[in-house]
Write a protein that binds this DNA or RNA. Structure first.
Lengths: 342, 342
DNA sequence: CTGTTAGCGCATTCAA
DNA sequence: TTGAATGCGCTAACAG
């Protein structure tokens, strides 16, 4: 690689001038500028981003922490984050924490120190907030990109969507269709990451005075297989359900296939609704009704917030709220048969 | 952030000693070592990776170029690549080229110069080989991670799998089941990226003296929707096909749903086989029979090769070949009905 | 075993 | 409008 010095020599100027030309700082005569540009082209010169980062005390990359890029939500989120980062001239360092022996703490510490100008956290699962705070304390800004609880301040700058409302909307949709015996598949502990979504479900039922039996809920893992297994279990033990609320799309897709494998016709025999609106929901058979979360908005706002923090903008908010979730009506929900034939 | 100098002062040693302790270079007394470690902990010190990269003339990151992380193959490949990179102590910079105004060339140039120690290219679609060569010429090693043609040297170090054999195996499977009227959905031009797979298809048919009509093939785009649309078209105009060979899983999944929407029962009325074995193939209904490509192996070997090149290992090969593709028999293929009822 | 010196490639003073 | 000096934080080479 050519260095700035070589280019400067070829152009008959000093490195300072080359640097000024390359960064459009003005203060350079047209003729000189021309000469420099030619020299740059001739040498195929590219500035060394590490050296620049070192002297500017800011890195050109942002780090995105996520559990595993393999979970379909993440690629979509990563793409949006990447694009937002690119708009700010940054690169994105993608950090899978799931396969790190220490759950990602070391990862975080290494990356946060110098490689990246800030850290976006998409998974609050494995990474503890305390850990994030200690990173923050070293001077590297941290933003929680996907925070489910707009009413709870995690103590770290975050972008929050209303998970309670998402659960509520999904459930309201089922109630509107006339369902009254609705099961719930939750991709976490009751008070875990999907706790807000589940609470929205419960509150929607309560608002219509529909009873929710403990036995109609399953708490498990947020995965396709998790949803599949839980649905198998739920539908086997409670076959008279006419609808299932699932706290996330991926397990909802699992539930969809589990239902089919048990001989249920979706949506005739059983309605299923998810949350998130990942791409796959429009590729399933039937396409999955879901409640869309503002993924792109979260990604953008996260990056914006992180950039603000990185530049010590004093009015960087502690929490940014997104637009409300919205129902995406597709083909996996319909009125219950019992009612239609009544 | 604390600097090495501060730590050194606190420990009463020089930066060199701190550096040596942190990198386990030996040459340090136990007592000193202890003092340094304490000072490091006390200050919460983390080495500045940029500074280190600058002086060591090697970056801690590897760049992975791909079209769009949203294509389900990429997350899986990215994960494997990431894990391999981590084993070498590197971080992974993920570069989506699809949304770059220049198709990724600038991206590549910036990243390759200094931010990363080498570039892995998973998409040979948009990026031209010439461009890769010019990057390589600047001294940054480049590896094509997913090369389809083991018999063709792209002129860049690469990891190749036998795409022809993949197509051949998929087709042989259909022939073995007794199909003789087989359609083809190809996710590229005839001589494009999936050309090897298609040639494998043709050669398998020819080997059994089964005729392949031009009208039974469609060349299009490598996407879910592409497969869906092409299958719709193909099945509408040629409903007497009993099987379809699809050059990639994603369009195969589209074809699966297109077939269902036309009232075909898969596999009773129609068999469908794909190539790659992405995770989704086991989550479709029916699960998709496919020919597995050694994704993890390619990722690992790519990283290994890149690392070799980065360290100027003289016996880094120009091409690494992977194990052969292997048939994954699932539920989307069966003997043709006509034959069963004959 | 530990310290000293030098410099990686660049941007930022300040001087001319 | 341009140049010279300085140092970002770290490691390498050598000296002691």
């Amino acid at each position: 690689m050519a260095t700035i010095k070589e280019v400067a020599e070829l152009a008959g100027v000093t490195p300072t001038t080359v640097s000024n030309v390359l960064r459009d700082r003005g203060r350079v005569g047209t003729a000189t500028r021309e000469r420099v540009l030619n020299a740059v082209a001739a040498k195929g010169y590219r500035p060394n981003l590490n050296a620049r980062a070192l002297v500017e005390r800011r890195a050109p990359t942002l780090a995105l922490m996520l559990g595993c890029i393999t979970n379909p939500f993440y690629p979509e989120f990563t793409l949006q984050t990447n694009n937002a980062a690119r708009r700010h001239g940054r690169f994105l360092l993608v950090c899978n924490t799931d396969y790190e022996p220490d759950g990602g703490s070391g990862f975080l510490a290494e990356v946060a120190g110098s490689l990246s100008d800030g850290v976006l956290v998409a998974n609050t699962g494995s990474l503890q907030v305390d850990e994030l705070k200690s990173i923050q304390a070293t001077g590297t800004p941290v933003v929680i990109s996907v925070w489910e609880f707009p009413d709870v301040d995690p103590g770290i700058p975050c972008v929050a969507f209303d998970s309670h409302k998402a659960g509520y909307i999904a459930t309201d949709h089922l109630l509107d269709l006339g369902h009254s015996r609705i099961g719930a598949l939750v991709g976490s502990e009751k008070n875990g990451i999907h706790g807000g979504r589940y609470k929205g479900f419960c509150d929607a039922l309560r608002a219509r005075k529909v009873k929710h039996l403990k036995t109609d809920a399953r708490f498990g893992t947020d995965s396709y297989q998790g949803g599949f297994d839980a649905a198998l279990d739920l539908l086997t033990s409670t076959p008279d359900l006419t609808a299932i609320f699932v706290s996330n799309d991926l397990p909802a897709l699992g539930a969809l296939n589990a239902a089919a494998s048990l001989g249920f016709n979706v949506p005739e025999d059983l309605s299923i609704v998810g949350i998130t609106n990942i791409e796959l929901t429009s590729q399933s058979r039937p396409a999955l009704t879901t409640v869309a979360i503002p993924t792109a908005e979260m990604a953008e706002k996260s990056v914006d917030l992180l950039i603000k923090l990185a530049s010590n903008d004093p009015d960087a908010p502690a929490m940014v709220r997104t637009a409300d979730p919205v129902l995406i009506k597709r083909a996996s929900t319909a009125a219950p048969k019992s009612r239609a034939t009544k």
